[in-house]
């Protein structure tokens, strides 16, 4: 029986269906994909939780993400991946900074610095696939967020709202390169 309805917001990305392929292995999840350029906020009302996909560019290129977060951050679990993570950062007032050299298609060690429901059954340090040329600037992270994981070079790899079930991860749980990626998505899906 399907018990959880999840909306996956696709920012024209080419990794979105890797997320879909993982989540449809969970029999209790009813997943639907929405293209963010055709999304109306009301579509999301009947869903239990929301995942914001990776994507090209910067959060400001996808203004609808801010309306989604404004409307649902305090009532539905939200998981943002890569661009989605940066959108969550920006929603809570943080800024993005360029990463140089850019990191595309590389597996780096990610270290969990603060326990989080998202990382249940995940070891403290694990390898994760990265595709990013921007990152959340540590100096701009507001009081409402906490940093829950960092990379070897101290780049922010995960944030969480202190008050609500809102999670951002910079690495790609859906990547072939990521250990425990399926567990992380499952943890979120079952929240």
């Amino acid at each position: 029986m399907k018990t959880k309805k999840i909306a996956l917001l696709d920012n024209n990305d080419s990794f979105t269906y890797n997320i879909v392929d993982y989540l449809r292995r969970l029999e209790t999840i009813d997943l639907r994909v929405f293209k963010t350029n055709k999304l109306s906020i009301a579509d999301l009302k009947r869903f239990d939780s929301i995942i914001i996909s990776p994507g090209p560019g910067l959060p400001k290129d996808f203004p609808v993400l801010f309306s989604v977060l404004e409307k649902y951050h305090d009532s539905k679990p939200v998981l943002g991946i890569c661009l989605g993570h940066q959108a969550i950062g920006a929603f809570y007032g943080a800024k993005c900074r360029p990463v140089f050299p850019v990191i595309h298609g590389q597996a780096h060690a990610v270290k969990i610095t603060k326990s989080s429901r998202l990382f249940d059954s995940v070891p403290k340090t694990f390898k994760a696939g990265l595709y990013h040329s921007w990152a959340i600037d540590r100096d701009t992270v507001s009081e409402e967020l906490e940093i829950t994981a960092v990379s070897e070079s101290k780049v922010i790899m995960a944030v969480a709202s202190k008050k609500y079930a809102v999670f951002g991860i910079q690495f790609h749980p859906e990547s072939y390169l990521t250990e425990n990626g399926f567990t992380i998505l499952k943890n979120f899906a079952e929240m």
């Binding site: 080419s14 990794f15 979105t16 269906y17 890797n18 879909v20 392929d21 595309h104 298609g105 590389q106 597996a107 696939g129 595709y131 790609h172 859906e174 990547s175 072939y176 390169l177």
Partner: peptide, 15 residues
């Protein structure tokens, strides 16, 4: 790294 990227892209496409 380039190969990794294409593997993740093709996984997506097959999905």
């Amino acid at each position: 790294w380039e190969h990794n990227t294409i593997v993740d892209l093709i996984r997506n496409d097959l999905a």
